[in-house]
Amino acid sequence: MSANLNRVHATFEGEAIEAETGASVAAALISSDRVAWRTTRDGAQRGLFCGIGVCFDCLVEIDGESGQRACMIPLQEGMRVCDNGTRASRTAVDADTEEAAQ
């Protein structure tokens, strides 16, 4: 790859991260020597697993929107990326949870 490709700059938890234009948020996190960026309910660290948007392990908060998959989203200039948090602040409908509650 040529060295003069445009790079985009963003932050993770306030610290600078960057990647080649078009690379994913996960690529930027891994480039900054992070291997994990989410904490599970049991306190375990998680990062990339499936890499293709299936497993939801790599969730981050992006510009205030939680539950975003770092593997799927290209890093954009000025993005504010944060730890998705231990609280499952889930905007998703968990249909099975409702089903089980009945």
């Binding site: 990339l48 890499g51 293709i52 497993c55 593997c71």
Partner: peptide
């Protein structure tokens, strides 16, 4: 630890 295909996709 990743899915093998995830490494390739990455």
């Amino acid at each position: 630890v990743m899915a093998a295909g995830g490494i390739q996709a990455f």
